[in-house]
Amino acid sequence: MLISALVTFLVVILILYLINLLPIDGRAKQICRVIVIVLGVISLLRYIAVI
């Protein structure tokens, strides 16, 4: 359980880093970041059996 939560956290950080490298508009980057963070939080909550 702890390892899967850690892997999810690392994947979210990696995706956020890659989004930062994309040559797109700042507003689109912000929307992508919010979506990734929300999905990451939902996934982490699922791993710790809250949802």
Rank of each mutant, 00 (worst) to 15 (best):
Leu2Met: 02
Val12Cys: 10
Leu44Gly: 12
Leu45Tyr: 07
Val12Lys: 09
Tyr17Leu: 14
Val41Ser: 13
Ile3Arg: 04
Val34Gly: 04
Ser43Asp: 12
Leu39His: 03
Ile51Leu: 14
Ile13Cys: 11
Phe9Val: 07
Phe9Ala: 15
Ile35Thr: 11
Val38Asp: 01
Leu10Lys: 02
Pro23Met: 09
Met1Ser: 11
Ile15Ala: 04
Arg46Ser: 12
Ile31Ser: 03
Ile24Phe: 06
Lys29Met: 11
Ile37Leu: 13
Gly40Thr: 10
Ile24Gly: 01
Leu14Glu: 04
Leu16Phe: 00
Leu21Ala: 09
Ile24Glu: 04
Ile37Tyr: 02
Leu10Glu: 03
Ser43Gln: 11
Asn20His: 13
Ile37Ser: 07
Val11Glu: 06
Arg33Pro: 03
Ile37Ala: 15
Val38Phe: 00
Leu21Tyr: 12
Ile42Ala: 15
Met1Val: 12
Leu2Trp: 03
Ile31Ala: 06
Met1Gln: 05
Leu39Pro: 02
Ile13Asn: 08
Ile37Val: 15
Ile13Gly: 01
Ala49Gln: 13
Val41Asn: 06
Arg33His: 10
Ile35Asp: 04
Val36Gly: 02
Leu16Ala: 02
Gly26Met: 09
Val38Ser: 11
Tyr47His: 13
Ile19Asp: 00
Ile24Cys: 04
Gly40Cys: 14
Asn20Ile: 03
Leu14Asp: 07
Arg27Val: 13
Val7His: 01
Thr8Ile: 13
Leu39Gln: 03
Leu21Ile: 09
Val11Met: 03
Asn20Phe: 08
Ile35Asn: 03
Ile48Ala: 08
Ile42Arg: 14
Phe9Met: 12
Ala5Asp: 04
Leu10Ile: 09
Leu10Tyr: 00
Val12Thr: 07
Ile19Gly: 00
Arg46Gly: 09
Leu44Cys: 13
Leu22Glu: 08
Leu2Val: 11
Pro23Arg: 14
Ile42Phe: 15
Leu22Gly: 08
Asn20Val: 03
Ile42Asn: 13
Ile51Ser: 12
Phe9Lys: 14
Leu45Cys: 15
Ile37Met: 09
Ile51Gln: 09
Ser43Lys: 07
Ser4Thr: 08
Leu21Gln: 15
Ile3Asp: 03
Ala49Pro: 02
Arg46Thr: 10
Val38Glu: 01
Val41Thr: 14
Met1Asp: 07
Ile3Glu: 04
Ile15Asp: 03
Val41Pro: 00
Ile48His: 03
Ile19Cys: 01
Thr8Gly: 06
Ile13Tyr: 06
Pro23Glu: 15
Leu18Ser: 02
Gly40Lys: 12
Val34Met: 10
Pro23Asp: 14
Met1Arg: 07
Arg27Trp: 12
Leu18Tyr: 04
Ala49Phe: 11
Ser43Pro: 01
Ile31Met: 10
Ala49Cys: 06
Leu16Asn: 13
Val11Ser: 05
Ala5Lys: 05
Tyr47Gly: 03
Ile19Ala: 01
Ile48Leu: 13
Phe9Ile: 08
Ile37Lys: 06
Leu6Pro: 00
Pro23Ser: 14
Gln30Pro: 00
Ser43Met: 09
Ala28Met: 14
Val38Trp: 00
Leu14Ala: 15
